[in-house]
């Protein structure tokens, strides 16, 4: 079973993140860029499936030059190779364009299974998995917390607001995962060394037959008009509990009409 895992490089969510003032895109220069957390769970799931069913695991990312770091990092966990779509024209791509480019690359790779995170931590769109599936005419089992593969048939448990749903589909399919699905492995020393030598193929828009004006800021279907920092919340009253903290709390709740 050949699996492609979609991997996005994102600015670390534990640090301050900003949009640039010139072109309204994410400030990636000053950020500490990391692999999108949910994508690590997708990689782990791919490796488990590979252990059980054989085949190859490929990481696919679209992003600037430095996104290759995220691919290399992911390869340390054990996948076989990477594919990096990099092209200056891609800067500022909307979700529609991103999915178009990813789908074009996936057509050339024709995997049995496409695994990805359910959500990227920067834009938090939760849209790319379904968009990619729609473009490929493939089923999407999204938001999964459990996946079972039996030949070409897939069964997944999808987390919902109310509980969960059991889904079925056949390969080729897109499966997006939450962090409840597994516990990603830490790269071993051997894995880290091996990753240095694993091939990462780069693809440009021309390689994929996509025109520069279909993507990036030029081809975007959405635009940021302006952005501003939200004023930080001002801290309010703070009391030390010296035996009456609970009473003070209720007094506050009552003054705000919550009690």
């Amino acid at each position: 079973m050949n699996i492609v895992v979609l991997v996005k490089q994102v600015p670390d969510s534990s640090a301050e993140r900003s949009l640039r003032s010139d072109d309204n895109t994410v400030d990636r220069e000053s950020a500490n860029n990391v692999i999108n957390e949910m994508d690590e769970y997708a990689i782990e799931e791919a490796l488990k499936l590979q252990e059980a069913h054989g085949g190859e695991v490929t990481l696919l990312s679209m992003g600037p030059e430095r996104a290759t770091e995220a691919i290399r990092k992911g390869l340390q966990m054990g996948p076989d190779k990477g594919v990096h779509i990099v092209d200056d024209a891609l800067a500022g791509s909307c979700a529609l364009a991103t999915s178009k480019v990813l789908a074009a690359a996936l057509r050339t790779l024709s995997p049995d299974l496409i695994l990805c995170g359910a959500e990227a931590t920067d834009a938090r769109g939760q849209v790319v998995p379904q968009m990619v599936a729609e473009r490929l005419g493939a089923p999407a089992l999204t938001g999964t917390r459990k996946l079972t593969v039996d030949g070409t048939s897939l069964t997944a448990e999808r987390q919902t607001e109310e509980g969960y749903e059991v889904l079925t589909a056949s390969t080729p399919a897109v499966v997006s995962v939450w962090d409840t699905i597994n516990e990603p492995r830490f790269p071993s020393f051997k894995g880290i060394m091996a990753a240095k030598k694993k091939p990462i193929q780069t693809l440009t828009l021309a390689d994929l037959g996509i025109a520069a004006d279909e993507v990036g800021a030029t081809g975007a279907s959405t635009a940021v008009v302006e952005h501003s920092k939200r004023p930080p919340r001002a801290a309010g009253t703070r009391v030390e509990d010296s035996g009456e903290g609970g009473l003070a709390l209720v007094e506050f709740l009552s003054s705000e009409k919550f009690v």
């Binding site: 919340r233 801290a235 309010g236 703070r238 009391v239 030390e240 903290g245 003070a248 709390l249 506050f252």
Partner: peptide, 8 residues
């Protein structure tokens, strides 16, 4: 830092 009311 963001609490309107806090009890330590």
């Amino acid at each position: 830092e963001l609490a309107d009311f806090g009890v330590v």
